[in-house]
Structure formats: C-alpha cells, structure tokens
C-alpha cells in the first residue's frame, strides 16, 4: 500500500509539473506579455527596463524556472486590478467555492446514491421509472437555466430564500464557512442545489447501472444462498462493488465542480473563485489568471490522488496489483 501511495504521489507531481509548463507556455509564449504589459507610448529605454525587470529578456527555459520557483513560493505577483497579492486574493475566495462544491457533491451523493441503487434493485417499479425520468431532465437542462428558475421561484416569487450572496460566515477550523449559521445556510441552498442537480442525475445513473450489473453476478447469488439478510447483501455486497466506479467519477466531478462553479457563482453572485476568475479574465488580470490555473491544477491533481487511494482501499485487487 505504501509503495502504491508513493507511486501515485510521484505521478501526481509529474502531472503538476507538466501542467505548469502548459500554463506557462499558454500565458507567456502564446499571448505576448510584453504587448499586454507595456503601453505603446512608453519610451524605448523604459520599455527595455520593464522587460528586464519582468525577466522577459531571459531565454525561455530560464523564464520557466523563474516562473516555477515563484509558483513554488506561492508568488504570482500583484493583481493589476486589486493591487494585492494574486494568490492571497484567490485563497480568500477558495473557501466559498469549496464550500459550495462540497455541499453540491454531498447533496448529489445523499440523494443520488439511494435513488440509483433502488432503481437498480427494482428497475420496473414506478418509483424507479420516475427517478430515471427525473435524471434525464437533470441531464438535459442547462445549469444556468435551472439556476435562474430556482432563483425566480424560491427567491423572487415565494421569497423563501435569498437570491444572491453568501450571507454571514463564521470561522470554522480557521476557514470562513456559511453553513454553520442559519442565514448562511439559506444562502447556500439555491446555488448548491443548482450545482448539484446535474450531478444527482449522474450519480443516479451510475448507481443504477452498477447495481443492475452487480445483482446479476454469481457472488450475489452466493450471498443469497448463504442465507444473508437482504440489508447485508445490498449494503455490503452490492454497495462495496458499485462504489468503485462511483468514487472515481465523483472525484473527477468534484474537480469539475470547483473549476466550473463559474456559471453558478456568477448567477448567484457567490463570492468564490469562479466569480473572481470571470472578473479577472474580463480585466486581463494576468497574475490572478495564472495563480488560478495553477491552483486548479494542484487541486484537481490532489483530488485524483485521493480518489486513487480510496479506490485502492475499496478494491483489494488494485491494492495488491500495485504492491506486487
């Protein structure tokens, strides 16, 4: 198991390095920073001074090492717009996004898994058919539309929930969270539900497909032949097998939720990273864009790393494969 963890860790680091090169090439080489940074009216001498001060006169590989070093130190420079450290701005916004994404993920698992497993166990029941129709709906409706509709209904028409913003936050384990106050929780419901809806559909489909397949396996027949109670068969024998693919996909989806919470955050004015990056792209705030991309790379690689570990815990075959 330790060998397995180490192997995955090395892979993850390699991926982060590769991605950092791509990000570097993307922002430094493809879009010429000289044109972006320096106004055409600046004198030639000033121009060269600025180029030198940014290290843009160095050969490209040296520029990358300078970039990599600053990334390692967490220095992405000052935001052009806010005049503050880019990384600090993003880290400030991160808890809001993570809270939103985590809540959405939990909603999709808590609702999707039982519904999906049930639909797989009793595929012909009316409840199962309703579940599947719902999941098709969840798949085919665009997120922004769902968000706007929910906002219209619950915030504008009924007035039950606040339409925008994050509400009051409290410090929890050193992180600003809103789910611990009643008002904060009310602010969280609409954007989290919007973000979760598509994922609920996905979890339902995965759980149903997995269950349908697993219940016909010989080892489930063996479990019945042994006289196990139905609960034990479903919650141990079936669930443990279907969780293997579900954990993988949910992990990937979690990364997506973080990276693409942009739409939801924009609709609900949720003060997370997604909203910040949209604003920054509009303002061509390069340090923030670079910092954001690198943070997302590290986050998603980290999630994948954790997923691999959970996967190995769930599936002894993977665990032993890797230690051999």
């Amino acid at each position: 198991m330790i060998a397995f963890v180490l192997q995955r860790l090395i892979q993850s680091i390699a991926i982060v390095i590769a991605m950092s090169i791509i990000v570097f090439v993307g922002v430094t080489v493809v879009g010429n920073p000289v044109d972006m940074l320096i106004s055409p009216e600046v004198s030639q001498a000033d121009r060269e001074r600025i180029i030198r001060s940014f290290g843009l006169d160095l050969p490209i590989h040296q520029q990358y090492f300078v970039f990599a070093l600053s990334v390692l130190r967490g220095e992405f420079g000052q935001s052009f717009v806010f005049g503050e450290s880019a990384i600090k701005l993003i880290v400030q916004r991160m808890p809001a996004t993570l809270e939103l994404a985590t809540t959405a993920l939990l909603i999709s698992i808590i609702i999707g898994l039982p519904l999906g497993v049930r639909a797989g166990l009793k595929p012909d029941s009316i409840a199962s058919r309703l579940t599947m129709s719902f999941s098709i709906l969840g798949f085919s409706l665009p997120t922004f539309w769902i968000g706007i509709m929910l906002m219209m209904l619950f915030a504008v028409v009924l007035g039950w929930l606040p339409a925008t913003g994050r509400g009051p936050t409290v410090l929890f384990l050193g992180v600003e969270v809103s789910f611990l106050t009643w008002d904060g929780l009310r602010h969280l419901i609409l954007p989290a539900t919007t973000l979760a809806l598509l994922k609920v559909s996905l979890v339902i489909r995965l759980a149903r497909a997995g269950t349908l397949e697993v219940v016909h396996q010989d080892y489930i027949r063996t479990a019945r032949a042994k006289g196990l109670k139905n609960d034990r068969i479903v919650f141990v024998h079936v669930l443990k097998n279907i969780m293997i693919p579900i954990v993988t996909i949910i992990g990937l989806e979690f990364g997506q939720l973080i990276a693409f919470s942009i739409v939801t955050e924009t609709i609900f004015s949720w003060p997370g990273m997604g909203k910040l990056i949209v604003d920054s792209i509009r303002m061509l705030d390069r340090p923030i864009i670079v910092a954001y991309l690198m943070i997302i790379v590290v986050l998603i690689t980290g999630i994948n790393f954790i997923v691999d570990i959970i996967y190995a815990i769930l599936d002894p075959r993977i665990r032993h494969e890797a230690t051999k």
């Binding site: 080892y219 027949r221 063996t222 019945r224 032949a225 042994k226 006289g227």
Partner: peptide
C-alpha cells in the same frame, strides 16, 4: 427460506472464479 439457506441446506456453485465476492476478504 432465508433461515434454512446456508444453514440447514446449502449449495456449492460451479464456477469458483465468480462465486466469491472480489472485494470482501
């Protein structure tokens, strides 16, 4: 029936490669 199965009357299936749950010890 469940109480009888696996206790008073039991069955051994044909294919040993598929009759055991792969993720349980």
């Amino acid at each position: 029936l469940r109480r009888l199965r696996g206790d008073r009357i039991s069955i051994i299936f044909q294919d040993p490669m598929t009759t055991l749950n792969p993720v349980l010890s």
